[in-house]
């Protein structure tokens, strides 16, 4: 296991590469989900507002 983590001495290059790839791909996913939530909240709020307006 230790040997694997050391990557033949190249760990300072190998693991940051994999970590950076993971972080960037995770960020792509998370930002998409956040954007979606924001849009849906906005749409819901607008619909509520219209409903209230149509009642009065």
């Amino acid at each position: 296991m230790k040997e694997f983590l050391l990557m033949g001495g190249y760990w300072p290059y190998v693991w940051p590469s994999f970590a950076a790839t993971f972080i960037v791909m995770a960020w792509l996913m998370i930002s998409t989900i956040w954007q979606r939530r924001k849009i849906i909240d906005g749409l819901k709020r607008k619909l509520e507002l219209e409903k209230r307006e149509s009642k009065t």
Binding site: T32, I33, Q35, R36, I39, I40, L43, L47
Partner: peptide, 25 residues
């Protein structure tokens, strides 16, 4: 990821259409 992002943009651009309003409600 592209499909998910495209869906977000579609929701925004089509916010005033009846199908989006139906889905939201």
């Amino acid at each position: 990821n592209m499909l998910a992002r495209a869906r977000n943009v579609i929701l925004q651009r089509e916010a005033k259409t009846s199908w989006v309003r139906e889905r939201v409600s």
